[in-house]
Every structure is written in structure tokens, then in C-alpha cells.
Amino acid sequence: MKKFQITFKGQVYELDVEEISGAASTGKKAASSPVPPSAPAPVAAQAPAPKAAPAAVPAGAQTVIAPMPGKILAVNIKAGDSVKRGQVIFILEAMKMQNEIMANQDGKVSKVNAAVGQTVSTGDVLAVLG
């Protein structure tokens, strides 16, 4: 039997939890009893981690950004490759669907910021085309 203390909606509860190995069970049920709430320990306010500033984009270059959050399934380019407008350069999985991310202009890939398996957020810069 292990004892745990949890707080739910400001109420402190003490739980006794029995570990069951395999399918055997003793038939005992865990009991919970409210514990009088104690004064919560003060938590130091933490400033959110500063978000990395976007890298400077050379004049005339375009960025390819993630239109939605998801996971990169394929990267079809590398730095130095030439691409044509409309060419599929990334496959992004979002909500169990594969979305093609295409080059937004003709040009040369100057930087690739995403890798296969990476999770990206909306607005993340996936590549820079110059």
C-alpha cells in the first residue's frame, strides 16, 4: 500500500493506493479522505522563457512557415537545392492527415530549419528560400 496526497480544486486528499500485479486482486478498495487544507506554499513567479528571436532573413528571401501545428514526416530539400514555386518541400502530419507544404517561390534553399520527426507549431519557420 502506498500513500499519496493530491490537491484537486484547492481541496487536499490523502489516497491509499494498492499496487496490483497481474490479474490477481485482493478485493480491497482504495479509500480517500479529505485532509484539512493547509496554507499553500508560496510559489515564486517564474518568467516565461524568452522565445528565440527569428533569424534574420536576407533581402529578397522568403520563409516557408508551418501553417498549423504538427509533425514533420518528410523533408524533400536540403540547403543549396533549387526549388520551383509549388514544389512539395515538406510533408506535415496534423490531425492524422498528411499536408503538403510547398515552396512559395522559385529559388535556392538557403536554410532548412525542420527535420523528420520534429514537432512544429503554427508560424514556425521551416525553411528559407533565397
Rank of each mutant, 00 (worst) to 15 (best):
K3G: 06
K3T: 15
F4K: 13
I6D: 12
I6Q: 12
T7A: 10
F8P: 04
K9I: 04
E14L: 07
L15R: 08
L15W: 10
D16F: 13
D16W: 12
D16Q: 15
V17D: 02
E18V: 15
E18H: 12
E19S: 12
E19I: 14
I20N: 13
I20R: 14
I20M: 13
S21V: 15
G22Q: 10
A24R: 13
S25L: 12
T26S: 15
T26W: 10
G27I: 13
G27V: 13
K29W: 06
K29C: 03
K29L: 13
A30Y: 07
A31T: 13
A31C: 05
S32G: 07
S32K: 14
S32T: 15
V35T: 11
V35I: 14
P36I: 05
P37H: 00
S38F: 12
S38I: 14
A39F: 05
P40C: 04
A41V: 07
A41R: 07
P42W: 08
P42T: 11
V43M: 14
V43K: 15
A44S: 11
A44M: 10
A45H: 06
Q46E: 15
Q46H: 08
A47N: 05
A47R: 13
P48L: 13
P48M: 08
A49W: 11
P50E: 14
P50I: 11
P50S: 14
K51Q: 14
A52Q: 11
A53F: 00
P54D: 12
A55C: 01
A56P: 04
A56K: 06
V57G: 02
P58T: 01
P58G: 03
A61P: 10
A61I: 03
A61F: 09
V64Q: 06
I65A: 07
I65R: 14
A66Y: 00
A66I: 02
P67I: 02
M68R: 01
M68W: 00
P69D: 12
G70A: 08
K71P: 04
I72L: 03
V75A: 03
N76T: 05
I77H: 03
K78R: 08
A79E: 14
A79Q: 09
D81R: 01
D81L: 01
D81W: 03
S82I: 01
V83G: 03
V83L: 03
K84F: 00
Q87C: 06
V88D: 08
V88C: 05
F90C: 05
I91N: 14
I91R: 04
I91S: 10
E93F: 06
E93V: 03
M95D: 07
M95K: 02
K96H: 09
M97Q: 01
Q98F: 04
N99W: 02
I101G: 03
A103C: 03
N104W: 06
N104G: 15
Q105M: 12
D106H: 06
D106R: 08
D106E: 06
G107I: 10
K108R: 12
K108Q: 13
K108H: 00
V109D: 05
S110M: 15
K111V: 00
K111L: 01
V112N: 07
N113I: 06
A114F: 06
V116R: 07
V116K: 10
V116H: 01
G117H: 00
Q118E: 07
Q118N: 00
Q118S: 04
Q118D: 11
T119G: 09
V120I: 10
T122W: 00
T122D: 10
G123R: 01
D124M: 02
D124C: 02
V125N: 02
V125A: 00
V128H: 05
L129W: 07
G130C: 00
